[in-house]
Nucleic acid binder design. Sequence first.
DNA 1: GAATCGCGATGCAACGTTGTAAGGTCGTGG
DNA 2: CCACGACCTTACAACGTTGCATCGCGATTC
Lengths: 330, 330
Amino acid sequence: MARLAGVSFKTVSNVLNDHPQVRDTTRERVLAAVNELGYRRNLTARNLRMGRSGAISLAVPELSQSFFAQLADDVIQVAAKKDLVVLVEQTGGDRERELEVLRSPRLAQTDGLLFSPLGLRPEDARPELLATPTVVLGEPLFAGPVDHVTMQHRAAARAATEHLLGIGRRRIVLLGAHDGETATVADLRHSGYREALHDAGVALDPALVVPIDVWSRPNGARAMAALMDTGAEFDAVFAMNDDLALGALRSLQERGVRVPQDVALMGFDDISDAQFSFPSLTTVEPGRHEIARLAVEYLVERVGEADAGPVPARTTAPDFRLVVRESTTR
Amino acid sequence: MARLAGVSFKTVSNVLNDHPQVRDTTRERVLAAVNELGYRRNLTARNLRMGRSGAISLAVPELSQSFFAQLADDVIQVAAKKDLVVLVEQTGGDRERELEVLRSPRLAQTDGLLFSPLGLRPEDARPELLATPTVVLGEPLFAGPVDHVTMQHRAAARAATEHLLGIGRRRIVLLGAHDGETATVADLRHSGYREALHDAGVALDPALVVPIDVWSRPNGARAMAALMDTGAEFDAVFAMNDDLALGALRSLQERGVRVPQDVALMGFDDISDAQFSFPSLTTVEPGRHEIARLAVEYLVERVGEADAGPVPARTTAPDFRLVVRESTTR
DNA sequence: GAATCGCGATGCAACGTTGTAAGGTCGTGG
DNA sequence: CCACGACCTTACAACGTTGCATCGCGATTC
């Protein structure tokens, strides 16, 4: 401790916290001593005293999926602007591990949680699990006193399907359905697809609705190949996310199917790779930046709740945007 | 505090830390009370007392770059196995922000730093910046008492170039050179390229060495397009990383250049996208898993240094592996 | 010249935990 | 019946910081 400045350690604390009650000469003397000794105050002790850590947790399925990597990128940047630091956990989209994250005492180390669950079911939303301020991303899960920053899943999927219908396609494959789910991302996007077909008076062919559990590139490629093996006829593919779409693109090209001439292709998420595939991928930009911004903002408010009084639970879904590229034109 | 179990809070602490000196009946009573009240011990106070936080920092340029996202994925998984949690910072590859990360008092909040610098120069490796245990990833920077887990940049680039020479290509573009650097990633990979050409008796054409500052997909696409505009003749491209390669692939395809028939293409890093481009991308797998594993291991040892005595500075570069795919065969 | 004022610095207590050492209780053996 | 030891449990101090209350001292005022 720098009492070579000839002051008490409390005065050092005062200087470092910019308390006004410090004479300028003293301040300088202290700062000099601090520099000399390379003194750094102990943040852990500070956190203990203050009851805040200045860190938030972000729990995502996995960073290897571009969408979550880019979401994490956004979140970290927004948080940095608010002088928050981000602790990243990976759940693998597995229900057990998602519950474990919620239960984990490590959560207590941070001020709040940005949570992007995949496997969790509504009945898991037990309030005692939410001891920490939490904002849920993407999934419209939980009913309790939790903020949600989600996407316009249904409306966007509907717009996507309408776009394919609008360029004259009628036999549109849906890639990535999840059977037997309600009000999940997969279910909502599926509804949007169904609605668009219905409104256009196009019959829904169940053979074109392809269930895929995990929305990864290899799974997209496999499912697309398998569908072609069945001899199914189709002139467009709407994939539940870009990874599926890019996997499917690969399988289509392997078999000499021309995109978009023979089959138009459309994804969801607007990951950066979508710009550089050949053909580039038409997709839905779900408002990722805005989601990250709002999520951090909500969480900060909720963390401050103890001081500022209760905050009502909010649910927001930013505007999406259809990004039309080569895979549905040209 | 759960003294409805009728014991002192210290006994609760003993129970939670699995101290043997607790009667079974007491243990049960305490655990029951803990469950009842949903008591969670305060990790911040624990950290303060123990002098460890159980968290490490990972500083990378940006998660939007697939390689770093996948590295972060690996690091988080390895760390989780050791009950460590990972705080992710982004520097943008910017020297100023990299220095800031090193100086940041937030670092003190974690036990150590895994650092993947891009902009830092050797002269920045001032020891006073390394107050925290640090392991450097990728870049062979720093001379001081710091562990390095890097890549066999030169040998791998050489092997890559030899592979292209081996399939009969002679006019090989190098995408991503950095002028005027020494002993950086770019410089080392460049050397490997030069050596392979030299050993094969192939003259190096400076017109085929394309400098690109930031190794991103758009930059790869742009540079490739620009090179073709000059009318340069070439039959292969070795890109310094997969992002550049995939950007270049897009530009090649836009102009109807056939890969690999007209131009063979090769990247570096083996990001997962490389498997699903069409044609799939031949690349170098630099031992990413092993890098993550070793880095965390080294850091843990160095964090424990205070207890276990000094650890010498180590530098390791795991084995790489050439992954031959369609972009250089078929 | 004495009382008051106010700025600047300091001391104390507390945040919630853990290691150490001391304390308490029970059973056993002399 | 007492003493001793084994086994549990508890009290105390400390980790390094910050908020609150206090204190000292020079300046201002009557």
